[in-house]
Nucleic acid binder design. Sequence first.
DNA 1: TGGTTAGCCTAAAACGATTTAGCGAATCAA
DNA 2: TTGATTCGCTAAATCGTTTTAGGCTAACCA
Lengths: 334, 334
Amino acid sequence: MKSLSIKDIAVKANVSITTVSFIINGKAKEKSISEAVIEKVKKIIEESGYKPNQIARSLRTGNSNIIGLIIEDISNSFFSRIARLIEDKAYKRGYKIIYSSTENNIDKAKELINLFKSRKVDAYIISPIKGIEEDVQMLLDDGNPVIFFDRNLPDVKTSYVGADHFNASYQSIQSFIDQGKKNIALVTTDINVAQITERHDGYKKALEDNGIVYDDSLVLKIHFNQEENETIAQIKSLLAHKKVDAVLFVTNYLAISGLKALKQIDKKIGDDFAIIAYDDHEAFELHTPRISAIQQPLEEIAEAIIKLILNRLSSKGKLPAEELIIPTRLVLRD
Amino acid sequence: MKSLSIKDIAVKANVSITTVSFIINGKAKEKSISEAVIEKVKKIIEESGYKPNQIARSLRTGNSNIIGLIIEDISNSFFSRIARLIEDKAYKRGYKIIYSSTENNIDKAKELINLFKSRKVDAYIISPIKGIEEDVQMLLDDGNPVIFFDRNLPDVKTSYVGADHFNASYQSIQSFIDQGKKNIALVTTDINVAQITERHDGYKKALEDNGIVYDDSLVLKIHFNQEENETIAQIKSLLAHKKVDAVLFVTNYLAISGLKALKQIDKKIGDDFAIIAYDDHEAFELHTPRISAIQQPLEEIAEAIIKLILNRLSSKGKLPAEELIIPTRLVLRD
DNA sequence: TGGTTAGCCTAAAACGATTTAGCGAATCAA
DNA sequence: TTGATTCGCTAAATCGTTTTAGGCTAACCA
């Protein structure tokens, strides 16, 4: 059962392929096709259920109405929720999204870029990792719109949408201090991206501004791809060896590991021990006691990304790179 | 900066396009191209960074090495984790996955099928909803491999991979009864798919087999797309008006709403009140007390799906539809 | 010697659309 | 009446591959 081609329609309607193409693409008026022919062809298309072959179309026009989304890990709820929002919004504007995860693997990220490139996606939304600067630069040099989100690569000049990581961190620490906390630990990761270092910097600065000396031994850097049990062990060790009355977790999965660690050593969150997680999570609302978190405004981030992309897509000329820093919300619970 | 085409390579190497194509596709030996030419062309390809245009390739060959994955909602962790696993496994076998969510919307599902069809994906993995039977049947009639997972459509004969929903439910209820529970409620949804009705049936059968009369007023059917607050209110109302000592939640998001409801009315889970959730969730392990759950073996499901797909893809003829029912695991906590 | 075969390579058609250039008839202006 | 313009439509080139069918030379065989 071969699917229909434009030629089949043309034959059935007894007109040329060109005419059918004009009608399909809404250029009938402009090309002065008679009302009668338009009607006839439309009817035949309708009845036969003909759908243009997008591949042929892409080959000819060089674009695809598809936007490629490259993220770290679709099974992380921050990304899957952003993906869903972006998908929705793009869809309403006639674009489809295809997405894939890099797993923080440089080679996989590069391959994905190539995959999308060879599929001629119209634009790229990327949560980047170090090591792909050149590849992204090539995309930009070829005139492709590229938007970074969540993380930025300082060496690549392109638009970026992200939360105000520095201030989010700063505010969290300030709130600990306002509660009278003195020994504030930071659990972070060793992936070297701006977003993570900003969170670290906010922590430092808040301590400094409050006259507290920064103590490197209170900062735990978790290796990115390690087993969760290892992470839990390290957190337990930190709490065992240091006097700590507050912890800021720099990602929600670290906070979850942290909660598991607390459970294992039966340390309670309460007046003398507080934690805040970066990025909210369903589990936090449900936890007893409920866990405070920094919420990134997903909806706004998604909206900003799509707006930037569409601007770039509709204006032929290159637009200057824009940086959108979106404020976060600190939700203090219990 | 136009990207290179096979023609550019041919010109540079001073051979024909055909020769280059043979070499790219590993048919050089078979077509008896001399070692010298192979070397030369490969070197030029290497140096120039030439990548074949996949769109042109797809247009010509009619396939894409892409598998389309259609799910209900990527932001649901069951789906995002399955997606991630499928992606991984497919990737290792040289296939890419593109995915998109239907949001349980029939029109969107149909559009997605069309999108994938017009992009000539090689196979479809679908978590189906009622109302798309015809569209799927057309795919099958055209000879496309289609695998359903998680849910099945009884009217469409194609392969299916899913958990043993009936027994999972049955065992959960049995375990309640073994604990001495008598008034067991079921919180389910009104989406009319086999997977949900099987869970319902397992509940009924287990009660019957234990001589407990099925009471329809203990079964709460939540409307699919409703606001969470509404859901919480309904659950509270059920608990207020009925004597209930155990609840089986038919999906994890319903269980989460349920936990919120319990929190609001300050009802504790303990010896006289138990719950089980269908599909595990990070929040359950962390909750105090920890929440029992039915785990679907995601890894196995993903593996089974990929195996079925690859079989179909490699064997030209149509294979008979297979149904793989994978046992679940009841994890009793605390 | 002449016919086959093998080895090495290529011309051209095909995939299914979009788009440019242009044709013939009808209408219009002068 | 004639030249220009508009109208309604189409032929053919094009996008970048794969693949079929076959050409040319040199070696081989009888």
